[in-house]
Design a protein around this nucleic acid. Sequence first.
DNA 1: CCAGACTGTTCAAGCGTTTTAGCAAAATTC
DNA 2: GAATTTTGCTAAAACGCTTGAACAGTCTGG
Lengths: 359, 359
Amino acid sequence: MISQEKNSGNGAGPVIHARADRAHPVTLREVAELAGVSTATVSLVINKKKNARIADETRQRVTEAIAKLGYRPNAMAKTLVSGTSKFIGLVADGVATTPFAGQIIHGAQDEAWKHGYALLIANTEGNKDLEKDAIAMMLEYKVRGILYSTWFHRPTDVPETLREADFVLVNCFSPEAGAARAVVPDEAQGGQSATEILLREGHRRIAFINTTTPAPAKDGRLQGYKSALEGAGIPFDPNLVIEAYPDQEGGYGATDDLLKLKVSAVYCYNDRMAMGLYDGLRENGLSIPDDIAVVGFDNQEVIAAHLRPPLSTVSLPHYELGAAGVRMLLGLDAAPLDSAVKIACPAVERASVAVHSPA
Amino acid sequence: MISQEKNSGNGAGPVIHARADRAHPVTLREVAELAGVSTATVSLVINKKKNARIADETRQRVTEAIAKLGYRPNAMAKTLVSGTSKFIGLVADGVATTPFAGQIIHGAQDEAWKHGYALLIANTEGNKDLEKDAIAMMLEYKVRGILYSTWFHRPTDVPETLREADFVLVNCFSPEAGAARAVVPDEAQGGQSATEILLREGHRRIAFINTTTPAPAKDGRLQGYKSALEGAGIPFDPNLVIEAYPDQEGGYGATDDLLKLKVSAVYCYNDRMAMGLYDGLRENGLSIPDDIAVVGFDNQEVIAAHLRPPLSTVSLPHYELGAAGVRMLLGLDAAPLDSAVKIACPAVERASVAVHSPA
DNA sequence: CCAGACTGTTCAAGCGTTTTAGCAAAATTC
DNA sequence: GAATTTTGCTAAAACGCTTGAACAGTCTGG
């Protein structure tokens, strides 16, 4: 409607450029002039100041002028006055590499939005120079704070410049204690939940195919496996833990070793290994879950939900990590400096573990 | 080093807060005072103005003052003066839903960065209200322009407010001609490439499992299949085209129909269908690629690269879409209003199609 | 040795807001 | 009906920066 009015008189010629005429953006002053008041008044009306005393009639006139001109406040000017912007920076090392980062972004954005903040995202793909530039850019835009995130859970150095801002590590943590606020997934609890899915169905002899790659997840998930067994009164047998590279090929390659263990169930370090293992088991004529039950870890949708049979697994709470990071940054959640906050990894049960209905 | 200096004298007590002291950000004026010059001079030094005449000695002093104070220009103030910001907005409907969006972001960011722009990303997950807020936010931050992207190639309505900005549609297009600049994948060429992978290996009777869901991709990929056959002098046989829902289950379910066709090769609408088809073929005791060759479409890494055997497919050029979108926005690439620019979908050959070395 | 050119630097206006102090007029009190 | 309070609004400074005009000095050529 508005742009219609603005464009009236342009005739019915072909569209030259698919955008409205916005050579000179409308400013507060113009609104003020049209409404016949001062800019101060317009500002007061716009921001609905509590103790501003504005006559209803005036408020009305201003509102109309705003609508008529299609006025948009200039956030830059606003920020200049207030000192800090309504931006939260998010530097990620792998938005493109992995589907996970998307969830962190999503969670962070929803939470940020809720508090009136917008996300300024920089994807570094691990490039340190880019990272430095990205942080510099964020500092120049006077972000409220920065979320520094990694695509897989790991220790990380805190870049020097990051310390110039308020920041929270997301899905990573600083090895030096007391150095940074951080939020990470609770690997141990996740590993325990994964194992418990199997225990609950009566499995007693459960193998764990761990990763060969050192990582907090490697230790945590193993720890969880042990805790679960202990909780079920089953002694931990190190022979039941084998290791392989954490991808499809690794899982496939572990098949033979696994079969030697004569277990009725196996818990894989991640869904990709489980996917490879599916192939290996199938080639051996074994059926899931009847011959052997399988659980994974990560809940990587494209894989887990669509394997045949669908894979029981444990979710990495990326969405929650992002959201919690924002809350910690804004001081809404407790954020200890001495240890990372842990977010639960919820179990997701699917058909790769038989559901024995109680007799 | 710098922050060391600032903190010297703080004693060796425990770290209270993991961030530098930045209560009052350093301004241009402070730098000017320390250097004993005017703010104008500092500004000139910082921006390396061509025709600014600054004594080396002065330049030196200013540079030192900047370093010493750890000065960061205030981008907001800069923007206020210049009128438009160095932001490009990117609204996406599915950063979290799909791994693809990450590539669009990545491409857009790399290209934007190259030209001194930062990306202001908003993930709407399809929510129209959110979308409107997001666009409003971008307009208030006076973005240079907006990239409006969808996670799968489709027609889309252009939101009214989007027209207030300079914009480009990415991975989508407006059904009304001449209404918007747009960049999309070249589905037809992709479909042709996919089919040609099979033709090149001597297959003559090739099935196409298309999707049941209407989409530009459905038509384009079929079109490409036809062109490829035509190019090879093979008449198009509609009976060789079957349709199924475009996911693993759909591909799996299409197995029986496919087998009836007695083809030596099949081209699937996407990788997920191919993944399901793998299961179906395997259950029928058929081996890939010896009994039947398979190609997919999308090049969804987690799937295609890691199936057994790895899947030959065609890449959706998301990275390029993002990059091209930015270039079109900035006027670096031609950007016709009357039809979308098409980006090639490159073939990715893997082991699901036998490679017959020439005798 | 002076006009003109050049060099190095500063002045000051302006970008679009917010916000505090203050002012005039209207309403209320006694 | 004077004093006081309340109401409705505005003036002007400030936020941190850029930039064209202007200004002293110093060179240069004639």
